[in-house]
Amino acid sequence: MASKSKGLLERFRDGEVVICAEGYLFEFERRGYLQAGTYVPEVVIEHPELVEALHREFVHAGSDVVLAFTFYLHREKLRLIGREADLERLNRAALRLARQVADDTGTLMAGNICSTNIYDPTDPAWEPAARAMFKEQIEWAVEGGADFIYAETFFAYAEARLALDCVKQYGNGLPAVVSISKHRGDLLFDGVPLEDALERLAEAGAAAVGLNCGRGPSTMLPLLQGLKDKIKVPLVAVPVPYRTHQDSPHFMTLKDPDGNLAFPLDLDPWLCSRSQIAAWSARAYALGVRYLGLCCGNASHFTRAMAEALGRQPPASRYTADMTKHAYYGTDPALIKFNTEQVRKTKF
């Protein structure tokens, strides 16, 4: 077992950056172990060895946090696929895998809750139902040894605030990191401005607040610039690694050349490059972001690029590209000169 790392609050207190790799849903869908659309992570009990391996891969690439794969493992999602009876089993399995990897690697382990998909301001019944869903997942996370709770991907302030209140009530004192997913326009789904929502969450006791999912680096950055001097707790930034733009600030509205929606299966042409992720990470850090990650679409090479942009050398950096030894583009004097000279002469 690796030595225990500093806690989340200690890291924030010391001005450190916490990297948290996400993107499990998309990665397992790409690999053929999770269904797009329903997006229920049944893989945690069907192929637990693969979930454990991806946890380890993300830590190898530079993640400071092993995020339990309980995103969308709530009662509403399981109801839709007829597996409510497996709710507790799935959550506890995911938490157990994350805790084991965190213990082995000396990293933090986070429990994970998210939007319930039942928020409806016209129906007061949504709140007690959502509270019950948050309560059970938070209590399982506490029992599973989580170091903090990450509450994410909320589209309405009311649901984000309820999630935070539930962490405070049922989380046995665990810190809460809370992030909102921002669509087009100035207001969240319940009419609250983003800045106001995050300020209220910070004042209510969140350890860190900010943005995740939906927006890519280029369309999340302007929002962060507007928040950096107004949020008094560490700022969270976890974009998707897709090249969203002004006309389509959210990856769910990106379209292919024929005008068809690319989400979720045809987003590959919009993936960022590693250098773009590295450049964005450095800019986000310069703005004061202290909780960084990547959401849907992330993979370990992006996490490594992020870590290296922050001056780190995770274990995966042993294999960072060294083009000086490339047979054709390299500069090492031991290379065969004929090959390198041909590249300079030839137009490939």
Rank of each mutant, 00 (worst) to 15 (best):
L224R: 01
E10V: 06
T324A: 01
A21M: 04
N212Y: 11
L265P: 00
M252Q: 15
L335M: 03
T219A: 07
E136G: 02
E308Q: 13
I45P: 00
P234H: 05
N212S: 11
T70P: 02
P264T: 15
K345W: 06
L34P: 06
I231K: 03
A327L: 09
Y150M: 12
P222Y: 07
L310N: 14
A307I: 04
C114Y: 06
G106F: 06
K230E: 05
P315G: 04
Y170M: 06
L287C: 10
E195I: 14
K255T: 15
L221V: 07
C295N: 15
E29M: 14
H60E: 07
A160V: 11
A204T: 01
S63K: 01
G293T: 02
V59A: 05
A21V: 01
V209I: 01
G205D: 11
W140L: 14
F154H: 14
I138W: 12
L162K: 04
G111M: 10
K168V: 03
A160I: 08
A204E: 10
A282Y: 05
S281C: 10
G191A: 09
Q137W: 10
A299M: 10
T219F: 05
R75H: 11
I118D: 03
A334G: 15
T38L: 13
G216M: 06
F348T: 12
P315H: 08
A305G: 03
Y24V: 00
H47C: 09
V343L: 09
V40W: 09
A125R: 13
H245V: 09
A146P: 12
Q100A: 15
E42G: 01
P249C: 09
A279K: 06
E195A: 09
D332L: 00
K135L: 02
L335C: 03
L8D: 08
L90T: 02
L174K: 13
V240L: 03
E16S: 07
R184G: 00
A53L: 09
H326T: 00
